[in-house]
Every structure is written in structure tokens, then in C-alpha cells.
Design a protein around this nucleic acid. Structure first.
Lengths: 125, 125
DNA sequence: GTCCTGTATTGACGAACGTCGATATACTCA
DNA sequence: TGAGTATATCGACGTTCGTCAATACAGGAC
């Protein structure tokens, strides 16, 4: 069979090709951290004892607020960070258990600690 | 100034924002490894003593030959792998020095060793 | 209740990506 | 030399991505 429909079916199956789910999961994490902003956010949170509120990150990166929010959502959906609301502010923290589940990831984020400068001043209580 | 030209200039400058070159380099590597095929290729080469020729990889992944070639080029341009021609065949190997220059990367690729199945038979001398 | 402030979501845009078929290049063998 | 094989490059296609302005959704203060 070499019809167009047959070829499309083959392509559909190829795209669904299982590969290892674990490898797929790790690839998704690497893709997320492949953006310099998200990598810096992750490294910053990893180097931070406790949490950081969004306004800190907005101050640190020269990007519009929706852009920061978008990047945080990507990290959240991969379970790399957690968000907790405290009054008006939302605080983000790295999920160290999730980080530890990827071999070498903690070393990678830790190694970037020097590269990410903390914001100077607090912007929320 | 709030003209359209002024805004465009701001956007241009933002895109050029330096960030740390090292962070940028690591982000590029993570972005490259964020594709499941490239991650598997890298892990496979990392788990391989010596080299692997392209036909091995073509047999291992269910992708067209130009696609494999494209992925290898991406890894090559990031200096993660090296290619050496041996007669008609081109053999690829991981650059362990480059891998070692990224904290945790060796652990990551090593951790994936079990996920990447070697091709069964040799296809070239 | 109404305002104000912090954060998320929506919708749009151009740029980059993954994939392919067709073609080009490089090498071997006869 | 010419035919055959291994790999790379080209050009195109649909998809995903990063970014933004505009808007919506909270929660606190009044």
C-alpha cells in the first residue's frame, strides 16, 4: 500500500512511537530548561532556600509580566516548581524531589548558582 | 518616547540581552537534548565505547535518513559529538570532554544508558 | 459594595523546529 | 571511466515556541 492515506497512517504511528516514557519525560524537562529564562528561573529557585515571589522574578528578568507568568506555567506543568498563594502574592519554590528524580539535574542547577544574581530588594512582605 | 520605532528598538535590545554566556551555552545544549531522538542518540553514543556509524542510528530510530542526519548536525554544531569519515561510512562519537564541561550532564546521559537499546547487528565493517 | 494591586489567561504575531522527498556530494569497486 | 552506496544538504510543509498587549481573575483595603 502506497496511497497518501497509507503514508499518513505511517506518519501518525511514527509520531506516536512510544520510546521510553522516562526518556520522553526527561526530554520534556530538558526542552523546558532549554530556554535561558526558564533555566535561570529554575537555577535561581534551586539556589534559594524557601520561596520566591513572582515580583522578584519580574524584577530580575527584563521581560513583560505575562511572559514570566508563561514560563512559570511551563515549569509548573512539568512539576519542577510549586506555587503557593500568600495573600495577594504567589510564591514559587523548586520541587527538589522532582529535581532529584532526574540524574545530574541537581548538579546542573547547582552549578549555575553563581550565574543567577539574586534580586536586590524584596518587593513584597 | 512611545513610538512604534521606539518600541521595536527596545525589543531588539531585549533580545540581545547578554545574560551569562555560559548559561546561554548550557541552555542551547539542553534545548538540543530536549528532543527525544537527539537525547537517545546522545545517550547511546555516551554508553558506547568508541564510535557508532550512521547506519546504526538509522536502523535504531524509525526516521528518514535526512532526519537522522539533521539531528546529528545539531549535536555536531554544539560540539557534543564528533564525526570521522572511514571510507564510505561516517562514525560518530560523543565528546566526553564537552559533556564533562556541563555539570551533571554525564550523570544524566549515563542514567539513560538502560533506556537506549543498542542496534542488534553491525551494518558496516 | 468599589477601588487597587498582583498574577493568570487569551489571542496574535513572527521565529524556530522536526520532518520529509528530492537532490547533491563523497567514496569504493569494477 | 561509470555504477553503486553512504551521508549531507536543500527546500518545503505544518507545528511548536517565545513574546507581547489586552483582558480577566483574584485578594486586600477602604
Amino acid at each position: 500500500m502506497s496511497t497518501a492515506a497509507g503514508r499518513d497512517e505511517i506518519l501518525r504511528l511514527r509520531r506516536k512511537a512510544p520510546a521510553s516514557p522516562w526518556l520522553e519525560d526527561i526530554a520534556a524537562i530538558l526542552r523546558a530548561l532549554g530556554d535561558p529564562t526558564r533555566l535561570a528561573i529554575a537555577a535561581l529557585l534551586f539556589a534559594t532556600e524557601g520561596e520566591l515571589c513572582v515580583c522578584h522574578l519580574e524584577a530580575r528578568f527584563d521581560l513583560a509580566q505575562p511572559t514570566i507568568s508563561h514560563h512559570l506555567k511551563v515549569l509548573r506543568e512539568l512539576a519542577l516548581v510549586t506555587a503557593t498563594r500568600r495573600a495577594t502574592w504567589i510564591h514559587y519554590a523548586i520541587d527538589r524531589e522532582r529535581v532529584a528524580s532526574v540524574p545530574g539535574l541537581a548538579a546542573l542547577l547547582g552549578g549555575l548558582a553563581r550565574e543567577v544574581t539574586r534580586p536586590k530588594r524584596a518587593c513584597c512582605p
